[in-house]
Design a protein around this nucleic acid. Structure first.
Length: 564
RNA sequence: CGGGAUGUAGCGCAGUUGGCUAGCGCGCAGCGUUCGGGACGCUGAGGUCGUGGGUUCAAGUCCCGCCAUCCCGACCA
């Protein structure tokens, strides 16, 4: 491709409203152009990247036995009424008449399930794996971060159909591997983590997280053993020596202070870790429950809900009052209504700590578990933070930002039940089909690659997804040089090398800066200077140094580079 | 959807207590000189000042509504 003819040129200045690195670089380099918030045009360069990403995904899905098909974007609302998932989608409508309303497809379980059902009749039709690569439309209250969170975006969605859970489990592992392969081939390091999936969903699901600062998610990563977890449900150890303090005599003292742990700690002149944090929740169907944790730590409510298998919310001021509990002075000691208390493991090692006395402006000092009160149960409900130890290898855990580039779900029979998708088994019994679904945001993946792979000069495309492999620059302008460049461009192109040829009559600096911004893997410069020695200058985008190579050897060099 | 900020040429911006024909840089077009890290000279094209209303002799400038964009939060099957 001749750069002079390419639609979508680099810009020296970029609109000031570009929020993220990917939006700024992709726009500045002429890969995308925003139509409105969360909706992007893909220009030729951007589209080439997108297509390469899609083809990598396509290849891996095919290898995993997937068959590609294409479903409609327009979904009659009736299809969605079958599953009741129409809430929060009201805005995404398309009308062909006063009563003819369609939803612009946000996902395709509702179309694939009946579609699969029209062909799945017998166990002989299973397993089956179908996928498509297509635009999705979602109601995003706030589109942001360039192409990472759009209202219209590209997605690969694959749906698998199985006779039983066991076969789904088998295929789920195949998909996990396929997903890792996709991200690897896109030059990305991915981590598989268990999705929080809300507190009660027993549906099993995993997310593929790519570390970058632009990410909206926080994951807890052990850099040593690679164990990654969703912050919402992460577990980790607090390492400390066993507390061998002697138990001192319990004291109740006047304590006028505010309601927070800090207030309490300051008043007693101790560190927050010496204060017992008591939080009371109203638990669905159960009532009030006291939850204890070391004062310097926080309760993770998602983990707590998972442990209780009930929904909960912090107790209201009224219910605390009616239970005789005083905010700021709540305590499992001398607990007037004897509400049950559970505790995080972090409390086990606490001795002679401070807690309220269930009386306004009175605290206990030198409180000890067992002697002064009893705990119904100890469990892990702590919110994991930087510095906790990895539950697998004991190295230090780190909180890092990451982009969720893919997710996979075991749907079970949720959708087959809604659409009555059954098969006739060997034993002559009709059984529900067991399903899985697996998504990768293709446009988000393009943005993620930019976020993960750039420097202050511009983007750095991994070979497999670069819009072109080689950026050929003509530096200077005279007939001999032009002729040599044309010849080289033709030679490389004729041999199947994807070349972007900057044939413009522009200054050297401008072209070199553009090349850095666009970020193709290999830059080849031909100038009067190199031509006088019959050489070209070759530089990898990721490296600082360059080589001079004989023009006659350049084709071989490029081929070797691309295959390495 | 709540809170905040912004909106003047394609992009980045200036425009004073309201005052004449709305400017500057980049980019774009033409001509010439340049040619290894965002070259230079000359000439030129390009504007509903986001939008609707109001105040005023007079509004880019003041007031109100709306829209759009970005940020923080809520939401994200």
């Amino acid at each position: 491709m001749r750069y002079s003819k390419l639609f979508g040129k680099t810009k020296k200045s970029v609109p000031s409203d570009k929020d993220s690195v990917n939006a700024r670089l992709l726009t500045q380099a002429g890969f995308v152009e925003k139509l409105c918030a969360g909706v992007y045009n893909y220009l030729p360069l951007g589209l080439r990247v997108l297509k390469k990403v899609e083809n990598i995904i396509r290849d891996e899905m095919n290898k995993a036995g997937g068959q590609e098909l294409l479903m409609p974007v327009l979904h009659p609302i009736s299809v969605w009424e079958s599953t009741g998932r129409t809430k929060s989608m009201d805005e995404i409508l398309f009308r062909t008449g006063p009563d003819k309303e369609f939803i612009l497809g946000p996902s395709h379980e509702e179309t694939i399930t009946p579609l699969a059902g029209s062909f799945i009749k017998s166990y002989k039709d299973l397993p089956l794996s179908l996928y498509q690569i297509q635009e999705k439309f979602r109601y995003e209250a706030r589109a942001k971060s360039g192409v990472l969170r759009g209202r219209e975006f590209g997605m690969k969605d694959l749906y698998s159909f199985h006779t039983d859970e066991e076969d789904l489990d088998r295929y789920y592992e195949i998909m996990k591997q396929a997903y890792s392969n996709v991200f690897n081939r896109c030059g990305l390091k991915s981590y598989i983590i268990e999705a929080s999936g809300g507190a009660f969903s027993d549906k099993f699901s995993h997310e593929f997280q790519i570390p970058t600062n632009a990410g909206e998610d926080t994951i807890i990563l052990c850099e040593k053993c690679g164990f990654a977890q969703n912050l919402e449900i992460a577990t980790g150890k607090i390492t400390e020596d066993e507390n061998t303090e002697e138990e001192k005599a319990l004291k109740m003292i006047d304590a006028v202070h505010g309601p927070s742990v800090e207030d309490t700690a300051n008043f007693h002149k101790v560190s927050p870790s010496k204060v017992l944090k008591s939080v009371v929740y109203e638990v669905e169907e159960v009532g009030l429950l006291g939850v204890l944790i070391r004062g310097d730590l926080s309760i993770n409510e998602v983990k707590l809900e998972k442990y209780l298998k009930k929904r909960l919310r912090p107790a209201s001021a009224e219910s605390l009052k009616s239970a005789g509990l005083v905010p700021g002075f709540i305590s499992p000691v001398s607990n007037p209504v004897e509400i049950p208390f559970i505790a995080d493991h972090s409390v086990t090692n606490m001795k002679n700590f401070v807690t309220g006395a269930n009386v306004q402006n009175f605290d206990f000092e030198n409180v000890n578990i067992g002697r002064d009160f009893q705990i119904k149960d100890f469990t892990d409900i702590v919110e994991v933070r930087n510095g906790f130890k990895c539950p697998k290898c004991e190295s230090s855990l780190k909180e890092i930002k990451a982009v969720e580039a893919g997710n996979i779900f075991k749907l079970g029979t949720k959708f087959s039940d809604s659409f009555n998708l059954k098969y006739l088994d060997k034993d002559g019994v009709l059984k529900p089909v067991v399903m899985g679904c697996y998504g990768i945001g293709t446009t988000r993946l393009v943005g993620t690659i930019v976020e993960a792979s750039h420097d202050e000069k511009g983007m750095i495309w991994p070979k497999n997804v670069a819009p072109y492999s080689v950026h050929l620059l003509k530096i200077g302008n005279d007939d001999t040089l032009n002729e040599a460049c044309e010849k080289l461009y033709k030679e490389l192109s004729d041999n199947g090398i994807e070349v972007l040829y900057d044939d413009r009559d522009e200054s050297a600096g401008l072209k070199l800066n553009d090349a850095d911004l666009i970020g193709l893997p290999l830059r080849i410069v031909l100038s009067k200077r190199t031509l006088s020695e019959n050489k070209v200058e070759v530089k990898e985008r990721i490296k600082d140094d360059f080589n001079l190579i004989d023009i006659s050897e350049i084709l071989e060099f490029v081929k070797n580079y691309l295959n390495s």
